[in-house]
């Protein structure tokens, strides 16, 4: 069976989809923090997405089959957005 890097390309596209969904989440969190008048949390929400982008890009550049710490980092960022959202709901 031939596979000229297609599995790797599919995986990279899956990373892209995930990063784009994360951008939507980051913008929603930033909007909620902005309407609450909390510039620090706005910056945190946007910085989180930037960091996620760096994690994804490093995963792509490292040409190894093993993903390294990228996967737990991605999960912790997702849980972090959940925690940030909960905080924003509770302080409003």
């Amino acid at each position: 069976m031939s596979d000229a890097g297609l599995a790797r390309e599919r995986t990279w596209l899956a990373w892209w989809r995930t990063i784009l969904v994360a951008a939507g989440v980051a913008l929603l969190a930033a909007r909620m923090a902005a309407t609450g008048g909390d510039p620090l949390l706005v910056a945190l929400a946007l910085a989180g997405w930037t960091a996620l982008f760096v994690v994804a890009f490093r995963r792509y550049r490292s040409r190894r089959a093993g993903p390294g710490p990228a996967l737990p980092l991605l999960a912790f960022f997702t849980a972090g957005y959940a925690a940030l959202g909960t905080l924003l709901v509770l302080i409003r």
Partner: peptide
């Protein structure tokens, strides 16, 4: 396996987005 993980992360992100949208 990594792509399956990413699909689960997107599911989690969609739930988080739903929570943020509900609140706003």
């Amino acid at each position: 396996n990594e792509r399956t993980f990413l699909a689960w992360i997107r599911t989690g992100l969609a739930l988080v987005a739903g929570g943020l949208a509900t609140a706003q």
